[in-house]
Each structure stands twice: as C-alpha cells, then as structure tokens.
C-alpha cells in the first residue's frame, strides 16, 4: 500500500509518500503563500525521491483543516483531483490531529492550536492513549483568551502546540502548568499525515473523494457582496 499525503492548512504546504515501511519521501515549504505554485512540483519531486510511479499510489490522504481557507482549498482540490485521476479512495485527517501526532508521547493534556487569523484560533484537546492520542474535544474556533480561560479552569498540565500557540504565546505564558511545544512543531506536516493515514488505511477507513469536505468551522463572510471588477486598471 502506497499513500500520498497532501497538507496545506497553514502557511506551510507539503506532501509525503509512505508505504508499510513508513515515510518514503516528503517535502515541505513555507516561504510566502505560494501553495498552488509549489504543490504540483512537490508531488512530482516526492514521488521521484520515493522512486515510485504515481500509478502505484493506492490511497490519497489530505489535511481537511481547519486552517487558512485559500491554501487549504488548494491542497484539498489537488488531492481530490489526484484521487479521482488515479481512481483510488481517500482519507481525510484534521490539521489539529496532525499537530498532536508528533507530541503523542506527552502525558499532558495536548492542546493543538492553529492560527485562524482575525484574532482567533482553531483548537482541540488530545489525551494520550495506548498507541497514540485521542481527541477529547471537537475542533472549535475561538479567541485566545477564551481558550486560556478554559485551560485555567481545567487546572491540569497542558502542552500547547501549533502556530496559534506561537502567535498568541503571550496569552498563555503566565498560566501555571501550561507549556509550549518547540516552535519546530508549529505546522501540521504531510509526514504526520501519511503516518496517521496509514493506520486508518489498515482499518480500511476510506472515503470516496465526494465525501471529503473541508473543515471550515466558520460561515463564509456574509459581508456585502463584492462585485468583481478585474478588468479595471
């Protein structure tokens, strides 16, 4: 079984390929909002590094968010098209699950937090279980201070991870028992994605591409409709 994973929920974009033996190749880049430009060449690069033909891919995994909408849609569109073109099933994993995965060995309450812009963060809580972590709250969006208040109320040792935790570090640094994971783990990665997806694939938790839906967690801006005037100089 060969899994292609595509991840583009934050300012980083990446892809990875894994087989039963683990991650065969991966690439990530986070330089300047160029997800659409980077992703297709990355997939081509990674499959060459993994020395496989695209036709050998049996599952396409994708980060379904929450995250930054435009970048997220680039990855999801590419993943759906790839699965359709290869006629293979898909696996959708949330960006917050991907953040919790590298810190799964922590006994603390894991708080995955992604910068949602507009002064908010996407977040979910995780707890260690045999063989990994389990999500104990549904992904949600809210103000950093509301999340800080919730952590204070819980009063247990927490490990904050994600670019939301980095950006709003000031809101959490005075909380007793709350630690931040190292900044190098601030973005969900395609490597985590293919590893998590591999476990799901073994349990045959596949979905057809038509069932993959981005996790937006917010309604579209119902601000006054902006008419398009792209022919104006």
């Amino acid at each position: 079984m060969i899994i292609l994973g595509i991840e583009s929920a934050t300012t980083q974009v990446g892809c990875a390929i894994a087989g039963h033996e683990g991650v065969l190749a991966s690439a990530h880049s986070s330089r300047g909002k160029r997800h659409a430009e980077m992703l297709t060449p990355q997939i081509d690069f990674v499959r060459r590094q993994a020395r496989i033909e695209l036709s050998e891919i049996s599952v396409v995994a994708v980060d379904i968010g929450p995250g930054l909408y435009t970048g997220l849609r680039v990855g999801i569109s590419a993943a759906m098209a790839t699965a359709f073109a290869l006629n293979v099933p898909m696996i959708g994993v949330t960006s917050l699950d991907l953040l919790a995965f590298p810190v799964r060995h922590s006994p603390k309450l894991i708080v995955a937090a992604i910068d949602a812009r507009r002064g908010e963060i996407f977040h979910a809580f995780y707890r260690q279980v045999p063989g990994g972590v389990q999500r104990v709250t549904e992904p949600a969006v809210g103000a950093p201070d509301d999340l800080a208040g919730e952590l204070l109320a819980r009063g247990e040792d927490c490990l904050l991870v994600g670019d939301g935790a980095v950006r709003y570090a000031a809101h959490f640094e005075d909380l007793r028992g709350v630690d931040a994971a190292e900044p190098g783990l601030a973005h969900p990665t395609a490597s985590s994605l293919v590893q998590l997806a591999h476990a799901q694939a073994l349990r045959e938790e596949f979905v057809p591409p038509s069932e993959i839906a981005p996790l937006y967690l917010r309604k579209p801006d119902a601000v006054e409709a902006k008419r398009i005037a792209w022919d104006r100089k």
Partner: peptide, 23 residues
C-alpha cells in the same frame, strides 16, 4: 488562471495541474 477571484481560480488551477501530473 486569471483574471478572476483568486480563491475560485485556485480550485480550477490546482485541479487541472493534479490531473495533468497524474495523467
């Protein structure tokens, strides 16, 4: 790939490039 709404354009461009790569 343009002109148009950037978020809308990116869905079509990303889809088309993925299809082109696989096929």
């Amino acid at each position: 790939h343009g002109p148009g709404l950037v978020g809308s354009l990116l869905v079509g461009v990303s889809t088309a490039k993925a299809l082109a790569l696989v096929w």
